[in-house]
């Protein structure tokens, strides 16, 4: 299998094996304003946008900066804005895109350099929902925190979140309202909200914490986050379920 891969890669590029990339460039030490630079590269079968960017860096312009680590859609460090959509560069095939391929850093984040954006604001949002396990009671001595398989099913998808920031970049209320935790953080809150091991007290507290017109009620069901999530998570669904539960809780007094 490795050999077929090798032969395909070493094959000379045909005319259709070329790709043109318009890449957003900004180096704070050199540029006053960002600009777009066009690169033409030879493609190979299975080439991802990240491969293309690395190839540009290796062969044409060593100053091009892009954040990447695992190259297999697990670490979430290479979310960029490709042809008008937030995607993981390592998870997007060059052959599937219309050319020239427009590559920009994630919108609504500040740019540090080229395709690298400042993520601290995003991490602050994630932290604001207290994304850690807070059980009401410790289990009896010698026992583990056991979760039933049925309960685990609820959070199967939201657990896949890789903190890439694509959804928060796509969400317009998250951009204009800095108190809104944004889709990723709310999906993370849902992951703990749905975890029955935490107990009733924490569950209630988590819901109350998010209950604000700048919390769960700020969601406008644009579904942008659901569309761009590289892991197929639907933060919209999570937020809607929590706001539904929160209102149900309020209406309980006459039940």
């Amino acid at each position: 299998m490795a050999t077929t891969q090798e032969t395909q890669r070493s094959e000379p590029a045909t005319a259709e094996g070329k790709a043109e990339l318009d890449v957003f460039r900004y180096i704070p030490e050199e540029d006053d304003e960002p600009h777009t630079e066009t690169y033409e590269i030879e493609t190979f079968e299975g080439m991802t946008v990240l491969d293309a960017l690395i190839k540009i860096r290796d062969e044409q312009d060593s100053s091009l900066t892009v954040r990447h680590s695992c190259r297999m859609a697990r670490c979430g460090s290479d979310a960029v804005y490709i042809n008008g959509t937030q995607r993981l560069a390592c998870n997007t095939q060059v052959s599937e895109l219309s050319q020239p391929i427009d590559v920009e850093p994630l919108p609504r984040f500040d740019v540090i350099r080229d395709l690298v954006v400042e993520m601290n604001e995003f991490y602050d949002r994630m932290e604001s929902v207290e994304p850690w396990f807070q059980p009401d009671h410790e289990p009896e001595t010698g026992e583990e925190y056991l979760q039933s398989p049925e309960n685990r099913k609820n959070i199967d998808t939201v657990l896949d979140c890789i903190w890439c920031g694509a959804c928060t970049s796509s969400c317009s209320p998250a951009a204009t309202d800095s108190d809104f935790p944004g889709p990723a953080a709310l999906a993370k809150a849902y992951r703990f909200y749905k975890d029955e091991r935490e107990g009733e007290e924490t569950r209630k507290r988590r819901l109350e914490m998010l209950e604000s017109s700048h919390g769960i009620y700020r969601c406008h069901t644009q579904f942008n986050c659901t569309e761009v999530c590289p892991k197929g998570i639907s933060p919209t669904e999570a937020i809607m379920e929590m706001s539904r539960d929160a209102v149900k809780e309020k209406l309980r007094f006459w039940r």
Partner: peptide
């Protein structure tokens, strides 16, 4: 996050809207 922010280019409000 403001104090931790390194020298970064703010792309302005148009990005937000």
């Amino acid at each position: 996050s403001q104090d931790r922010r390194v020298d970064s280019y703010d792309r302005g409000r148009i990005e937000d809207v």
